[in-house]
């Protein structure tokens, strides 16, 4: 049985992964700078910033077999400098500790957002393609840099089996990420004149993908997505929400007012960013178990009733 460290344990996805690992009999330590609302039984939780020294002590004390680095700050409530500290400096620290303490495996959660939604995006996008997001939106620079850092890490430290995952939109009943919250609104807007193709992956399937990536000991950078691609308005109707059109400048204001919606995400409602996970599926036996309709409905059903 393995001894596991999960960063970002306050997040819904990390909780899912921890639950699955505990179920398989592994021992799990979680760390987050946020408060964990409903800690799982048998789960050891530390509250600390990834770039602080507490995390060094944790690595010194425990002898991890694998680190799941799932903690990434998305919220724009945090200033850019703080996000850089947490996402880039924090990740660097974790990765250095992994090497220092000879942890054999590292799984890093990145995002497909770094490809950017752009009018010249072809369909689908594979792993070796340019990361266009930074072109227009400097807010996502920290995510791109973290991904780049982890990606070069794969080659610089072959002794650590490092796997970087770039999933598409992850949604689900226990998640509180921007898109899930957005879909839970009673009236979900769309940009007038645009209806781009999108993909949605159930949180449970993503948790499976994360575990598979570790268990199959693959190294490299991999997209992860589901089988079906649909337009945004179809997604709204499958999540049984009412919808209304909104023009782009108003959208910017609206989105910022209804939640902390990162500006660069607006382009994802205008241009497609459809990815392929053919590479991932050629290496591991991954098949999403949740269908499209089920995935969308599961994410919003609690808000609808």
């Amino acid at each position: 049985m393995a001894h596991v460290l999960i960063t970002g344990i306050a997040g819904g996805l990390a909780q899912r992964v921890a639950q699955k690992l505990l179920g398989q009999g592994h021992t799990v330590v979680g760390i987050d700078y946020r408060h964990v609302r409903t800690p799982l039984e048998k789960l050891t939780v530390h509250r600390a910033h990834y770039n602080k020294t507490i995390i060094e002590d944790i690595f010194r004390r425990e002898n991890f077999d694998v680190v799941f680095h799932l903690g990434r700050v998305f919220s724009l409530k945090e200033a850019a400098g703080k996000r850089f500290d947490l996402n880039v400096v924090g990740s660097q620290k974790i990765m250095n500790l992994v090497v220092q303490h000879k942890v054999p495996s590292l799984i890093v959660l990145s995002t497909f957002h770094i490809y950017g939604a752009h009018p010249s995006n072809h369909i689908p996008i594979a792993e070796d393609e340019p990361l266009r997001a930074g072109l227009q939106f400097p807010q996502i620079a920290d995510a791109i840099q973290m991904d780049n850092m982890a990606t070069t890490w794969v080659y610089r430290h072959p002794e650590v089996k490092t796997c970087v995952l770039r999933p598409t939109n992850i949604i689900g009943p226990t998640l509180h990420n921007t898109l899930t919250q957005f879909l839970r609104l009673k009236h979900v807007p769309y940009l007038l004149g645009f209806n781009p193709m999108m993909q949605f992956l159930h949180e449970d399937d993503m948790a499976d993908a994360i575990l598979l990536a570790w268990q199959s000991q693959i190294t490299g950078v991999f997209n992860v997505t589901s089988d079906e691609t649909i337009p945004w308005r179809t997604a709204i109707s499958l999540s049984r929400a009412k919808t209304f059109p909104i023009v782009a400048p108003v959208a910017d204001l609206f989105l910022r007012a209804t939640g902390n919606f990162p500006g660069y995400l607006i382009d994802f409602f205008r241009y497609p960013c459809v990815i392929t996970d053919r590479l991932f599926r050629s290496k591991v036996n991954f098949f999403p178990r949740h269908g499209l309709e089920e995935t969308l409905w599961s994410a919003v059903s609690a808000a609808r009733i």
Partner: peptide
Amino acid sequence: ERWVSTLPFVNEMFARSGVVLGDPINCRN
């Protein structure tokens, strides 16, 4: 052409009718 994707309404009408952005990877697929 690339700029077609930036035209409101037109981009959707074209995509639903089977028009694709002229890009080598789209074309090859």
